[in-house]
Amino acid sequence: MTDELEQQDGPQRLDRKVLEALVCPVTRGVLSYDATAQELISKAAGLAFPIRNGIPVMLVDEARRIEE
């Protein structure tokens, strides 16, 4: 018997509990979730942290700088 993974169209959704538990590693502030870009945004730090394969990568070296 084999398990088949369901494929989803479009970006993956991040679990709300995970989002509520995560904070910016720089400011310890709130993050917002951009489902389209698959990123967690820290407006205070000006950084966007990527989500890869459904896993948030909370490393400053991996973050993208954002401008406001």
Rank of each mutant, 00 (worst) to 15 (best):
T2S: 14
D3P: 02
E4G: 04
E4S: 10
E4Q: 14
E4T: 12
L5S: 13
Q8I: 05
Q8R: 15
Q8F: 10
D9R: 15
D9T: 12
G10E: 13
G10I: 14
Q12I: 09
R13M: 14
R13F: 11
R13N: 13
L14I: 08
D15Q: 13
D15I: 04
R16W: 02
K17V: 08
K17F: 09
V18M: 15
V18I: 15
V18E: 04
L19W: 05
L19K: 02
L19G: 02
L19F: 09
E20Q: 15
A21N: 10
L22A: 09
L22K: 05
L22N: 03
V23G: 11
P25C: 09
P25R: 11
T27P: 03
R28V: 03
R28C: 06
G29L: 10
V30A: 08
V30M: 06
S32T: 14
Y33Q: 00
D34I: 01
A35S: 14
A35H: 13
Q38D: 06
E39P: 00
L40H: 01
I41H: 00
S42V: 02
K43W: 03
K43D: 13
A44Y: 01
A45E: 01
G46V: 07
G46L: 06
G46Y: 03
G46S: 09
L47H: 02
L47C: 09
A48Q: 01
A48M: 04
F49K: 01
F49L: 03
P50D: 08
I51S: 00
R52M: 05
R52W: 03
R52C: 09
R52L: 12
N53I: 01
N53F: 03
G54P: 06
G54W: 07
I55S: 06
I55N: 06
V57A: 08
V57D: 08
V57S: 04
V57K: 08
M58T: 05
M58V: 07
V60M: 08
D61A: 15
D61N: 12
D61L: 10
D61K: 13
E62N: 12
A63M: 10
A63E: 01
R64A: 07
R65W: 02
R65D: 11
R65Q: 13
R65V: 10
I66K: 10
E67N: 12
E67Y: 06
E67T: 15
E68H: 10
E68D: 13
